[in-house]
Design a protein around this nucleic acid. Structure first.
Lengths: 362, 362
DNA sequence: TTGTAAGCGTTATCAT
DNA sequence: ATGATAACGCTTACAA
């Protein structure tokens, strides 16, 4: 752990000259070699004799040298930092995504700056076009306010990876999740486990693209495929997807004249609220009503009973988007098997995670 | 929105020469002035005539000039980026903290790189001493694994602000929250609203420092002050603080021979679980048992009934820690009224947010 | 295998 | 109020 005062490899020196940082030149001098040689050692250049390498490393160690990233960045024209633009870091879904992206980036030696746009259209546009310094080598963008009609906003002159289901275009690399398929899978599972009156919670009437629209579409497709007639009375809209919205929507459903025996909630918060409403009436989950959620958020396993949910594969979203971005930054022409001039589009598979809130298959 | 192809003020140019970035020199040439003048305009230097300013700005606009941050950083010896080291971005508490820190930093023109240490001692030490490039001007550190015995780890040669209650020392700037006082306030409130058998949920037996230990201490102090005898049977330990732990702990309490009429849960997840367990038995919150939580997490308002909770003042924590860090980076000698050579210690006030899970005061 | 030297795009010190 | 010019610390042709 070195001496007590010269703690580890220091970070930035504060400008007030508190710590005068050691330069390559000084290391070179101390080691009796040229700057180039030090640079070679630092960057693991192959053709360096063992002897010199050792000499240099000793000097580096002794002086506590740390490479100056700003200088390197300036020289290289890159910063090693990417930006992740999301609506709200406080939503579990995006917190999880951010966490995964940070982890993936770390593996590739990249740092991540998270930029929450806080449900503001301005914020999203600013994150894309603002005089955000060229601090970032590239951006991963998850729009919420911007929609299909804003597709031109995505035509930027730096590496950009789009995620989510708000906008579809072939002018940028895009990693999406299986919303339709996921909801379809959830609905089918309920039907196959014996439910006949499957309700859907959290619908945004009229929405086509976007999570709500796509998931609702999956619900309808599943009904059709299973030969079950669509019943408008089993559709519970909810603008927001908080727990309380699930409680309210579920209560309306229970007060209605078409009591469901299964519920597909369009996210886990809604599902949690729905379970609460059901249980408050003395009904049992899943015996009286099965409930299934979407997102497989961290908490879903801690509900009582633990919530069955669709896992959208955020790990894959994080992994793919970071890798694609890195390849673009590196100027690779072939990214994920897609040739020059063309853009990546990948839909990440979702998976059903079965827990206690649904009945076993018949 | 400019021309379609030259989209807004671009970010980094990818290294592969895709976009050759515009330099100050070129702007100077186009505007017919010197580089220094352009720099003056860009940095809002006072003594620039309106005419020149306009000329320069026009040129900047036309060429789409964006300042090169790397060059500026190199020159200034600062990066404008701070690091926020936290245990886990997926915990609502830290997601909220991160969100607030990012917001505060933005106000001061700083960017934040969030570094989750994922419950690893190694990770925390690495975040402090690792050859983290001098990418950061300073660090805000919220330890979880490191404890009082690791206080020497905090002796670093760059600006560092400690947050949380794991470590106390006067060798670094520290922003803490009122754990003892908050729990005391919560407990007293229950007592004053008529509860006589107040249980506490989520205790870590033997812990002194750390949220659990301090909050439990507050609970005991409140009992004492209100002349209520401490009853070991009303203490429900829980190693983890997930919802399911709250359910389990509450059930044990309800199965015990000392039925509580009030519950202080050491965080909101535990409280949520406790309410569930209570309600599953057909008991009413707050009529039969009052429940109060800690953290005032975003979800607490969406529970049924909405959860009364202690708001630890994370906004203030974020604001203070970012400002202190910025002042240290700027080399200010007087920070928050504390003179040179001394360190800031601030305890942020907590507040009780009363909602529906507790009875009104008598 | 290693050394020399020319920038990368800023900011800041002088002059003027 | 503005201009010429020297750093900032690094990478990399090009030379040796």
């Amino acid at each position: 752990m070195k001496t007590k005062s010269s703690n580890g490899g220091g970070l930035a020196k504060s400008l007030d000259g508190a710590t005068k940082s050691v330069t390559m030149r000084e290391v070179a001098q101390a080691a009796g070699v040229s700057v180039k040689t030090v640079s070679n050692v630092v960057n693991d250049y192959e053709h360096v004799s063992e002897a010199t390498r050792r000499k240099v490393n000793t000097a580096i160690e002794k002086l506590g040298y740390v490479v100056n990233v700003s200088a390197r960045n300036l020289r290289l024209g890159q910063t090693g930092v990417i930006s992740l633009v999301i609506p709200d870091l406080q939503l579990p879904y995006f917190a999880q995504l951010s966490s995964l992206v940070i982890g993936e980036a770390k593996k590739l030696g990249l740092h991540v700056i998270v930029e929450p746009t806080l449900y503001s259209r301005e914020g999203e546009i600013d994150a894309l076009h603002g005089s955000r310094q060229n601090l970032f080598d590239g951006v991963i963008f998850s729009p919420l306010e911007l929609g299909q009609e804003d597709v031109d906003q995505l035509k930027v002159d730096y590496p950009l990876v789009l995620i989510g289901e708000r906008i579809f275009t072939n002018t940028v690399d895009h990693v999406a999740t299986e919303n339709v398929e996921g909801a379809k899978r959830a609905t089918s599972y309920l039907i196959q486990s014996g439910c006949r009156r499957v309700a859907v919670l959290g619908v945004h009437p009229g929405e086509k693209v976007g999570s709500a629209g796509l998931r609702f579409q999956g619900y309808r497709e599943a009904l059709e495929e299973n030969g079950i007639e669509f019943d408008e009375r089993l559709v519970a809209p909810a603008g927001m997807w908080h727990r309380v919205d699930g409680v309210n929507a579920m209560n309306e459903l229970l007060d209605g004249d078409a009591r469901p025996d299964g519920v597909v909630a369009l996210n886990d918060m809604l599902a949690s609220g729905a379970m609460h409403a059901i249980q408050m009436r003395g009904l049992k989950v899943p015996d009286d009503i099965s409930v299934i959620g979407f997102d497989n958020s961290d908490d879903s396993q801690y509900l009582s009973p633990p919530l069955s949910s669709i896992a959208p594969g955020l790990e894959a979203v994080a992994r793919l988007s970071v890798r694609v971005l890195r390849d673009r930054i590196d100027g690779k022409t072939d990214v994920l098997g897609v040739g020059p001039g063309r853009h990546v589009f990948r839909k990440v598979s979702s998976a059903l995670v079965v827990r206690g809130s649904t009945k076993p298959l018949e």
